[in-house]
Write a protein that binds this DNA or RNA. Structure first.
Length: 557
RNA sequence: AGGGGCGUCGACAAGUGGCUUAAGUCACCAGGUUUUGAUCCUGGCAUUCGUAGGUUCGAAUCCUACCGCCCCUGCCA
């Protein structure tokens, strides 16, 4: 059991730390937490954090709590709480508890008074601008606030009145009394509480002061007995402060903060600001637009949770700022979909083919495996062949290039699983477009196996004109056309890929797809992986292309 | 400028003084199988670990200096 786990789990420094702590007996069991701020949708970057936080807890038999970091009522909404829960569950993880930092507001407040009584916090009445000036610079130490030496009594009185709502926003702020000359800016008397007369999504109007992230996070971890508080690199400089609170307060446990690099991909933007801009300025159709790197977008696109979890394991955990090649994501998606998506045929741009020697009004049925690669075929589906079929327009070339293995005048190809046909005639319209092919079929080669054993190189997909079901297919491609959207002086919006969405209204697909439920993931053979969109209905199929199959032929040409 | 991090193949990433004349994955290249030009299989792909010195019988791993990149001056998280 543990051996197979070791094989799949690549070593990383966080795993090492946890394993050491467990081995040494520092902790009998580990506790982690995933602490999203409920102010937006989760994206693929969060998926990595989820895999690390929940995944490591699961792997080592510990627990992970889901804690909404709701210390800023002006930015947070309940709507996001639900979508975050849905996304985590979709990825397959279970939280041991759901908590909110706001659950701890009373305790946090009590600790703040403790700090004041210990002479380690004070109410500053400077303006934000004055505080900024007093903070100094990277090179120069800050200066103490003129309010820094207020008495404990005065501080307590002021702080309580802040809490009671007696002051305007910005009038006062509670600060830790640490060191205005610290080379670490975070230690120059950081703010603990600010006055905010805002309605909180959970505590309503009960509070007029709210704790800052720095003041709330570590203590919340301590309350939950978190052993390993895993976060991203930008919090590294906050760790001394995190520890200062833990050391100066009577907290129930001593969590350890460990930072690791966030996940970035080529051809993507991940910042909340940019994602919001894409949605609000209508560059995409919403937060769950299949081109978005949000988990809801990827879900709608057809990415499977297993693919995303596998990807995170492949990417690993380190402290290096890095940007992962999207091809790694694409590989993870194809790898999982290849194993789990039943095969079907669908013609994106239909070209009519008439089998002239095929009996009129006749339907020939064939059985085709759902998973041709598997030994047992993974089950079968039935597909009808009729006199008129559609093939992919791209699969015909009047003047074939060298090494062409598809339809062309005089050439014989296989209609996958069904027949061998030879192109006899090309019919064009007034402007010279090919509108129809007249072919013959070999009645002796049912299923596509020639009686004489002759080699037929090309196999193409097709759909019966009579039985095929019309569908709208939405082909998605990467949202940006450059590896680093917005790098340097450029505006990322100028680098949107104009072809990120292509809508095909006239596709025809196998009849057994007519009743497919939204969310159904399939492969259209020779094309790619697809997923039935939520917009789909039995009389108006809408299918999203998740990702194409690899195509070494297209690459060559 | 001060502080905190990080630099191993095109992209991720193992490795923490000898079993490494540096794992694995993606990408890429070359073959094979194939009723998906898919999958699958095989082979190739860093004499070198940011650079320069040093310690050592022996260094990607230790020391020194230098170079580069990222983060930090919100009453955001």
């Amino acid at each position: 059991m543990s051996e197979s786990k070791d094989e799949s789990a690549a070593p990383n420094f966080v795993r090492d730390i946890i394993a050491d702590d467990l081995r040494s007996g520092k902790h009998p069991q580990i506790v982690t937490r995933f602490p999203p701020e409920p102010n937006g949708y989760l994206h693929i970057g969060h998926a990595k954090a989820i895999c690390v936080d929940f995944g490591l807890a699961k792997e080592f038999g510990g627990r992970c709590t889901l804690r909404f970091d709701d210390t800023n009522p002006v930015k947070e909404e309940t709507e996001f709480v639900e979508s975050i829960k849905e996304d985590i569950a979709w990825l397959g993880f279970e939280w041991s508890d759901i908590r909110f930092t706001s659950d701890y507001f009373d305790q946090l407040y009590a600790w703040a008074e403790d700090l004041i009584r210990a002479g380690k916090a004070y109410v500053d009445s400077q303006s934000a601008e004055q505080m900024k000036e007093g903070r100094g610079d990277f090179g120069t130490p800050g200066t103490n606030s003129p309010y820094r030496d207020r008495s404990v009594e005065e501080n307590l009185d002021l702080f309580r009145r802040m809490k009671a709502g007696e002051f305007a926003e910005g009038a006062h702020v509670l600060r830790a009394k640490i060191d205005m000359a610290s080379p670490n800016m975070n230690m120059r008397d950081p703010a603990l509480y600010r006055i905010l007369h805002a309605h909180h999504h959970r505590t309503g109007d009960a509070w007029h002061i709210y704790p800052t992230y720095d003041y709330a996070h570590g203590q919340s971890d301590a309350i939950e007995h978190v052993t390993h508080s895993l976060c991203t690199l930008e919090f590294e400089a906050h760790r001394p402060l995190y520890e200062w609170f833990i050391d100066n307060l009577d907290v129930p446990s001593k969590p350890r903060q460990i930072e690791f690099a966030r996940l970035n991909f080529t051809y993507m933007v991940m910042s909340k600001r940019k994602l919001r801009q894409l949605v609000e300025e209508d560059h995409v159709l919403g937060w769950d637009d299949p081109r978005m790197p949000t988990l809801s977008g990827m879900r709608r696109r057809g990415f499977s949770p297993a693919a995303i979890v596998n990807l995170c394991e492949r990417v690993g955990v380190s402290k290096r700022n890095s940007q992962v090649d999207v091809s790694l994501l694409e590989h993870a998606v194809r790898d999982d979909l290849n194993q789990h998506s039943p095969r079907h045929m669908g013609v994106m741009r239909p070209l009519e083919v008439v089998l002239e020697n095929f009996p009129d009004d006749h339907t020939e049925w064939f059985e085709a495996p759902q998973f041709p690669g598997r030994e047992d075929g993974g089950g079968t589906r039935r597909i009808p062949l009729t006199k008129v079929v559609y093939v992919e327009h791209d699969d015909f070339m009047e003047e074939p290039v060298k090494k062409w293995r598809r339809l062309a005048p005089g050439v014989e190809v296989r209609l996958r699983y069904a027949a061998l046909v030879t192109c006899k005639e090309v019919v064009k319209n007034d402007v010279g477009d090919v509108v129809r092919l007249v072919c013959t079929w070999d009645p002796e080669a049912k299923g596509g196996n020639p009686a004489d054993g002759r080699k037929v190189k090309g196999t193409i997909h097709w759909v019966s004109a009579e039985h095929g079901v019309p569908a709208t297919v939405r082909n998605y491609d990467r949202l940006f056309s450059v590896e680093n959207p917005g790098a340097g002086e450029t505006n990322f919006l100028d680098q949107l890929n104009p072809d990120s969405l292509e809508v095909l209204e006239g596709a025809r697909v196998e009849p057994d797809l007519a009743q497919a439920e939204p969310g159904t993931r399939i492969q259209f053979e020779r094309l790619g992986y697809y997923c039935v969109d939520p917009d789909s209905s039995p009389d108006a199929l809408v299918i999203n292309r998740t990702i194409t199959l690899r195509d070494s032929w297209a690459k060559k040409s």
